Simulated scan of single mutants.
Amino acid sequence: MHAPDDPHRYQEVLVSPMYLAGSSGAGDAGFAPVAHWPHHYLDEGPCQLVVTSPDQRIRIGWFGDDFELWKITAAKEAISAPRWTATFNHVTPPEIVAGLTTALARDYAEADAYDVNGRFLVNPSRYWADAVRPLTEAGWTRDGGAERGTVEIVALDGQAGVLIDNRLSGWDDETVTLWAGPSGWGTRAEAIFTAGTPSHLIAATAAVMAESAPVIRERHQIDQRMEHLVTLTPVGQVAGPQVSRAPTPLDVRRTAVTQAVHRAARAPRTATALRVMAAQSRSAGAAQHRSGSLAPAAAARPPASSPPPRHGR
């Protein structure tokens, strides 16, 4: 862990390769493509937020305190069993999740009233290569040591890959795993897809992993076991318009607290609301000492939403 008194602890850095950047502590990047879809905030249970398509056939769940941070499903009808499931663990960069949610938002927008299924429910290709084409086109190569009946494609640096299980399996069995980083609870990112997942959705997720663009993190968010595998460049040292200026993790935290307080102020004084008010008090004091005493986020946070109208959420 980074020392609490490290003056560079909260320094913003560009992390490359992106697939080793880990989580930013917030899900904004993953939810951004579906920000216009209905949001359902849950006070009880492990799932803290569910974003659904307007007809609720697509569901994107955020489990802020769990190992499997994201669970995304699609079904033929709102009340029917999922046709496929994708899960992303707590180490997966949300920018990779955004590859899938962007494709889902596009598929849903392109479906018309006469399209019963939508492209997000098509059967996967019979050819495993279709799901990972962005990786092979980027120069990732096949690992000849994979177990019989499986295929593994590995990045040039050997620190990321995809494992495909081609053995006979059920519709709900997990057959494709995108991974990055060394094995370990805090170092290995994993995105797992069941057998029914459309190939183009897996490819859309893989395409983000194949990109070389770095992402912004605060230095303390990089696991020390990963520092020798990534390139960290302080944001202030990068010149030119090529650097994307997305909201920083600190921006996300401040916005989340402010807007959570707005929600709590308009709701009955439940235990949840009281905890939010306490968080406001802690965050206000911490923000004044950002250089040395700002406390890190205790757990991953769902994205901030727009403040609700005064008559309700």
Rank of each mutant, 00 (worst) to 15 (best):
M1D: 07
S199C: 04
L42T: 07
A191I: 12
A155T: 00
D55Q: 09
M277E: 05
V116K: 08
A210I: 11
P4T: 03
M18Q: 13
Y127P: 03
R188I: 06
N166Q: 14
S16R: 01
R301W: 00
C47V: 15
D28G: 10
V257C: 01
H39M: 03
I58E: 01
T233R: 05
E152T: 15
I72S: 11
E12K: 15
E218Q: 10
L178F: 07
A78I: 00
A284Y: 14
S23R: 09
S53L: 03
F63M: 08
R9M: 07
T177E: 08
E68Y: 01
T194W: 00
G240L: 00
Q221N: 07
H289R: 15
A246S: 11
V215K: 02
H36T: 14
H289D: 14
S80P: 02
Y127C: 08
V276E: 08
A287V: 13
H40R: 15
T187K: 01
E44R: 12
R301K: 02
H311D: 15
V162Q: 01
K76T: 08
H262V: 11
E190S: 04
T197C: 14
A113C: 03
L294Y: 15
T205R: 03
N89C: 07
V154Q: 09
V132C: 03
A191G: 11
P82C: 13
T233F: 02
R57H: 11
D43P: 03
A206N: 09
G22M: 06
Q56L: 07
A109P: 02
V215A: 06
P249H: 02
T177P: 00
D172R: 10
T52S: 13
T87R: 10
M277S: 00
Q237A: 13
R126I: 02
L121N: 08
A138D: 13
A278R: 10
V154I: 15
D5Y: 04
P234Q: 13
R59F: 04
A86L: 05
S293T: 11
A213S: 08
I164C: 12
R253Q: 10
D28Q: 13
E147W: 02
K71C: 04
